[in-house]
Structures are given as C-alpha cells and as structure tokens.
Nucleic acid binder design. Structure first.
Length: 509
RNA sequence: GCUGGUAUGGUGUAGUUAGGCCCAUCAUGAAGCCCUCUCGAGGCUUCGACCCGGGUUCAAAUCCCGGUACUAGCACCA
C-alpha cells in the first residue's frame, strides 16, 4: 500500500501541519491587493468595545491582503435609532485609534440617498420591487399565511406612480402608508425572506440632510446597493444578519450582481459589562445613571480610552477570540491581562494613599537623608525617585486601612515602624524600629507629607462611581500618562479638580 | 410555529473541509512554589474539555444516523 502511494500520490504520505494556527483564518476567494471590506456602524452613539471587534477584524484582514477598509455610516433611520451628529467624528477618531490609520474611504449613507432612490426606481421599473400599501400588521398576516397581497399584482406603471407619490413632499403618502418590497415570493419556505421591505417613508428630519428626502432605504436595501457600488468583496457581520445575507442574495440574483463572500461572528458579552446596547446606554445616561458616554463604568471606546486601555491590547484581544459563530461571554480579565502586558513596561510607579492617616514619625535615630525608590522595578535604567527626609521627625501618610490593622508595618523601601494608636492632642506618633529589611514585616505603601499632593481617584466600586480622595506622590508626568499606583494597580493622570487636586482615573489592577 | 446557526477544560480558542503524529493546542483563570522592599511584573508546577446515544472503521473530536441543549431571524431598527 505504502509503495503504491509513494508512486501514485506522494503527497498523501506527507504529514499534515499540526501547528497551532496563528491569527485569523484565511479568507475565501481573496486575492492580494483586491480585498475590499467595510465596517458599517450606526452613528447613534460612540463605538463600544463590541464594535471594536468589527473595526479590528476588518482592518486586520485588509492588512493581511493589502486590501481596503471602508468606514460606512449606516444612518438611514431618523426615528428609532436616530443619528447623533457628534458620533460621526467620535467614530472616525476611534477607528483611527484602533487601526492606526485613516479608513480608505468614508461614506455616509445619508449623503448617498440619490443613488439608493435611483436604484429603487430602476428596480421597480424592472418589476423586481413593488409598492405595497398594506399596514405592517396586515402584511404580517399575509406573510404567515403565505398569501400575496393585492398590491403585489399591480402593474409596473401603477407601481411607478405610487413610487412617485411616496416621494411627493406635498401630497404624498404618509409614514406607514406605503413601503417598497422586493418580490422574492410569498411562499418562500423561510418566512423572513418573503417579499421583504426595502424602503419606507420617514417624515422625521435627518440630522444631516434634514427633510430633503421622504423615502428612506432600510438596512438590507441600502447595504446591498452600497456594497455593490463599492465593490465590497467580503462582508463580515454578526450571525443575526444571516437572513440579511439571504435577502440580499435574492436581490443580487435578480439584478445579476455577484454577492460578496460573507463571514459571521456570534454575539459577545463581557461578564462585567453584559451586552453593548447603545440605545440602552443612551437612555441610562439620560436618566442620570451614568455621567456621560465616557463614564469609566461604560464599555464605550471613549470611556475605555479615557481609562487608558491600549489599542494594541484590544486588537490582540479580538484577534485571539477569532471569528467563530459561537455566542460567547468573556471575562474582562482576559482583556485586562493583555492590557497589563501592553502598558506595564512604560508605567512609572507612584504612591497614592487613599483616605490618608498622618503620623508623626520619629526618625532621629536614623541617619538617612532621603529614601530612594525605583521608578520601575524591572527597568532600573528609568531612574529612581528620591524622597528627602527632614531631620528629627517627619509626617508620613498611610492608608487608613493599613493604620487600622495594629500590627507592625514596613514602609516600603524605607523602614519598619511601630505606631502608637493612642491619639494625643498633636495627633498620632510612631517610631522607626529599623531600616534594614529583616524578616517579613508586611509592606505598606506610604507618602511623606513633603512629597504629597491632594488627589482624587475615579474608580468603580460595586457598580458605583467613586471619587476616592487621597494623596498622590508629587510628580511632573503630563496628563495622559498611565501610571501604576503601588499596591493598587494602573491608573491614568487625567487633569485637575477645581480645588487643585490631581485627578486620576483607574484603569484596572 | 416556520427558517437558520452553534456545541472542545471555569472562560475563550486550535484541531473537524482531506479519520491515525490528539490519552487533544494556546491563552486566560484557579491553586501552590520561586523571585521581588507593590496586593504589580516575571519564572516554575498543578488543575481541568471533545453535548448525549448508536453506527462505520484496524483507527473517530474529526465520517454517518438519531437525540438534546443553547441561540438568531421572521421590524415600515441597525
């Protein structure tokens, strides 16, 4: 047998590659330099961590094949998911942040209305679509019963006349009185595909183009036309849009277009965040449950950027998760672990004492004139921090949590101390036991008063946004610097409070 | 109800198209140890999975049949 194979089909004897696949799987029918992808959000709010999957997977594939990525704003709903004019800029900004470059093309569907209406006119005149005057409820009955409504048999002339009436700003149909449907067949075995609606009337003005248009395409039609117009080769979308693919495929077949390759992913939830509903967040913000789109508790990209998440870590996160159609729920710790790896090496160490307790420490028995601490313990080349010590006695601040446990403590990089917990008129007092590191006295972080500035740290505790007051080690790092607070975790320097206190936002442990 | 989709350790994921190198990969997590003057980082060790039941085969995570579970669409939202 083996000999036969050796002669006839030597390939069959070759061991298959069994190495772990790295990165994204290959795309079907993808030619180097010819791949065109698109990311198509609704600008009804800023991008969320969930959207970033679309940005990253699409741009990563574009990178793999030297292709193009289009950023397309699907803003054709003026009423239910109304566009927020500010979101266009936010989204473009976050797109660039995540991919490191501008999209190859930016399209706003609302600025392409003439194209969609022209195609609609054409498809009606070719008999592929018809105007339907049934109400949504009536048509639902027809759909369930697999029955054709009377509108379906109207002549093309009638349909074109009704189409003109839909678009008539003065005497036209009102919202809900007419839609354009694609003639797919009312006995299609999949009910979702039966004569699906392509355009409807909206009289709510659009934030970008006002009341210039009356008939607006629905997603399935707008997207179908635009993907064709832009010669998109590969669509990557949620599996909730599988029937969209099938609807659009029928239209493409009717008009002789070739449908792009399509891939799907499942729904993602993050344990700590739950889902990523922009509409839900918007109403929560309006009700005052959050301070705004960049509230650090929210999974929006503006909020995550504000906290100091790294774009590269988010990229790796999504690429590692890959493109499966499974619905998954991922703990935030997976992303945070990647993020720590991304930011740790550049994060200078600083001391932040929350709810500080001040102690008069007698240091008259020691000869040190300063305490020296590394800026980063793994990178001695980054230099050291030096805290000068005054002679005789100094005021040191420790977290009240540390003060309350009455054991001996070691001030990190300095000395073991003993605190007298009986308060005197002049406050608390303590003294140095030794400066050498002997045994394993629990280490706490601390701050001498001459190195401390008032600060607040914004962080989430049990769902509540807490502004923790404390003292931050004096430093001259600029705003935007990601630091690591000793024994607490990563945070970012954001700015100053009105009272002059330095403001920090917690990133994660 | 109709039409689809998905099932690999606690959580994700590779492997499934072309059955054997898979007593199953990598990451994350948990536990323990080492290192470290941070509850950080790093190192080492350990834990833990092929939805179920049949069948085909010398050989099945992979093929066939039958179940089960979960999930999506059936919007004049995207």
């Amino acid at each position: 047998m083996r000999r036969i194979l050796e002669n006839e089909a030597p390939d069959a004897l070759e061991k298959r590659e069994r190495e772990r696949r790295e990165g994204l799987p290959e795309l079907a029918n993808a030619n180097e330099g010819e791949v065109v992808l698109r990311f198509a959000p609704n600008p009804n709010g800023p991008l969320t961590l969930g959207h970033s999957r679309g940005v990253i997977i699409n741009s990563e594939y574009a990178n793999m094949y030297s292709g193009k990525t289009i950023l397309r704003f699907d803003d054709t709903d003026t009423k239910i998911k109304r566009p927020d004019e500010r979101a266009y800029g936010w989204i473009l900004d976050d797109f660039i942040w995540l991919t490191g470059k501008e999209p190859d093309l930016v399209i706003e569907a609302s600025s392409r209305m003439d194209v969609y209406l022209e195609y609609s006119n054409q498809f009606i005149s070719e008999g592929h679509m018809y105007v339907c005057n049934c109400t949504a409820d009536e048509f639902r009955e027809y759909r369930i019963a697999k029955l054709e409504c009377s509108c379906r048999s109207n002549s093309i002339e009638d349909n074109l006349s009704k189409w003109r009436q839909m678009n008539d700003n003065i005497q036209g149909y009102n919202e809900g009185e007419a839609v354009v449907r694609v003639k797919t067949g009312m006995n299609h075995k999949n009910p979702a595909l039966r004569d699906w609606p392509a355009l409807r009337i909206q009289t709510t003005p659009h934030p970008k183009v006002g009341d210039k248009y009356r008939v607006w395409p629905l997603l399935d039609f707008q997207s179908a036309v635009e993907d064709y117009e832009q010669r998109v080769t590969h669509i990557i979308r949620g599996k909730d849009l599988m029937d969209s693919t099938r609807k659009q495929q029928i239209l493409y077949d009717k008009v002789g277009w070739k449908y792009p390759e399509t891939l799907y992913w499942g729904r993602v939830k993050i344990h700590e965040f739950g889902g990523f509903s922009t509409s839900q967040m918007k109403s929560d913000i309006n009700e005052g449950n959050y301070t705004g789109w960049n509230d650090p508790r929210l999974p929006t990209l503006p909020a995550m950027r504000r906290r100091g998440y790294d774009a590269g870590a988010i990229r790796k996160f999504w690429i590692d998760l890959g493109l499966t159609q499974k619905d998954i729920s991922v703990p935030l710790s997976t992303l945070n672990s990647l993020n720590s790896k991304a930011v740790d090496a550049d994060a200078p160490r600083l001391s932040f004492v929350r709810n500080p307790c001040s102690i008069n420490l007698d240091i008259s028995k020691i000869e040190l004139t300063k305490v020296t601490l590394p800026i980063h313990p793994e990178h001695p080349d980054k230099g050291v921090r030096e805290w000068p010590l005054e002679e005789g006695s100094i005021k040191v601040n420790i977290a009240s949590d540390d003060f309350n446990s009455h054991e001996a403590r070691r001030l990190k990089d300095f000395a073991d101390i003993e605190i007298n917990h009986e308060k005197t008129g002049d406050g608390w007092f303590g003294e140095v036991i030794r400066t050498e590191r002997l045994g394993n006295t629990p280490i706490i972080h601390w701050l001498p008063s001459n190195m401390a500035q008032p600060a607040v740290l914004l962080l989430e505790e049990e769902g509540i946004l807490v502004t923790a007051e404390g003292l931050l080690e004096i430093n001259d790092y600029p705003n935007g610097t990601i630091i690591q607070l000793e024994r607490m975790g990563f945070a970012i320097l954001e700015g100053f409070e009105d009272n002059g206190a330095r403001r920090l936002v917690r990133l994660h442990a």
